[in-house]
Design a protein around this nucleic acid. Structure first.
Lengths: 241, 241
DNA sequence: TGCGGTCTGTACGGTATCGAACATAAAACG
DNA sequence: CGTTTTATGTTCGATACCGTACAGACCGCA
């Protein structure tokens, strides 16, 4: 997997025209993304933009009292650090590695320089940001109206779409942090899915047995987000289907 | 108020350099925004970008079963239709006039043409979009963790910041739709604020009596969003202080 | 002046989630 | 191998919010 085509695992990078790709290739630094690693803390200066290859990064907001909630999730279909070119220059949320793997990163200044060529890359990144906005908006709606059971299904499916495998390494405690609910709530919801033979898990390892079954139980939020990603980034992100 | 400087009531427009402003001025169409008017339904083609002058527009997501939730609110500090230049071309949410007044609108194609000059206007719009993203993310967090009481305070303050007056025309029923809760929940929360002499309302008319009092009760979400707006758009949006 | 509609207040049981406490079991480690 | 740590399962009362129902208050209008 260390062949030169590696950065193309990331769908945004893979969508670049050859010329742009060749220009950026020497600047793309491969970095390991170990589970739980905090790439950015809220307020940190954005030194790099990260393009996940086979890892998943979770964007969390952490409140004053320590409680947290996931805002969005980023995998090989996207990038971490859109605020860089949107004009923020600092990270508004915490970014944590939710599924280990590696990513390619580009220094902030180079990223900005490339963005300011006002070419294909820029328009691609803006479309991706629009899709990210949809994901955030839908998260807000889901938090308001849907049960923990449904949100767990959504979370599992979003993760599955960003993985090559049907197995994820993640404790119920961590899922609870992401969803912003109690660990016991996840235990219960996961227990139901387990009894329904949709998933199988033990001590931090979750295997999805019946993806269509999950899709039956999930709220509309999942499909809304997925459809919007497919619409805005048709070639880059086809999801798990 | 019908003098030529009117479009400058909108902070984004007001931030344009004179040359750009003069170029756009003939294209800006003044439109009335009556209370409750649906500017865009979810999925509608974005014919215009709207720049509120003295009205407030609410971005809502409406679910399959009719339940709704507010995603963000837009007043004179911003614009409706960022998807236009982000690459969406259609509106992802419903946009409803929450406080009547008027706005200036620009045809989608002209908007896009101006954006694609890659100048000051583009960078301004991107910064605004980044601020909007923060608002959406914080809405997601607030929906997860905070009580209806706190959310009502947040909603009132966000509205106040976008008005010149301390009085808003809005029934509890409509506020409930925005917050995605029952009308009775708003009645109770508003009753508490009324008894605490922070607000005074009757039949669709809410008068804020004690703004600092509201700020004492609101959750951190309000200040987070406000600070980020001030940081990204220092001249354009100073809020209600 | 009376009528109908709209807005607001209140009550009640039902339910999901919380917060805390504790039990069990599998892995990690000496 | 036994001990400690970590992950999961279960229980219980408290609480916030929901869904429903209905009553009162105010407004517009005939």
């Amino acid at each position: 997997m260390a062949d030169p085509s590696c950065p193309r695992q990331n769908h945004l990078i893979n969508s670049l025209p050859e010329e742009t790709y060749q220009r950026l290739l020497p600047q793309l630094e491969r970095v390991q993304m170990p589970l739980g690693h905090v790439i950015y803390e809220s307020g940190d200066e954005l030194r790099h933009a990260y393009f996940p290859a086979n890892c998943i990064v979770s964007l969390l907001y952490v409140m004053e009292n320590g409680a947290s909630a996931e805002i969005a999730v980023v995998g090989k279909e996207g990038m971490v650090g859109v605020a860089l070119f949107m004009g923020g220059s600092s990270m508004p949320n915490r970014a944590v590695v939710q599924s280990e793997g590696y990513a390619y990163r580009l220094r902030g200044q180079l990223m900005l320089k490339e963005f300011n060529r006002y070419g294909v890359f820029m328009h691609l990144l803006l479309r991706y940001t629009q899709a990210l906005i949809t994901q955030m908006a839908q998260t807000a709606v889901c938090n308001r109206h849907h049960s923990v059971d449904q949100q767990l299904c959504r979370w599992l499916l979003l993760s599955l779409d960003r993985l090559d495998s049907n197995e994820l390494t993640m404790t119920q405690e961590l899922i609870a942090n992401m969803l912003g609910v109690r660990r016991e709530g996840v235990t219960e919801a996961a227990g139901k899915l387990q009894r329904a033979k949709l998933i199988d898990y033990s001590r931090g390892r979750i295997t999805v047995l019946d993806r269509p079954g999950l899709e039956m139980r999930v709220c509309e939020c999942y499909q809304v987000v997925k459809t919007e990603f497919d619409r805005l980034l048709p070639l880059e992100f086809s999801g798990g289907h």
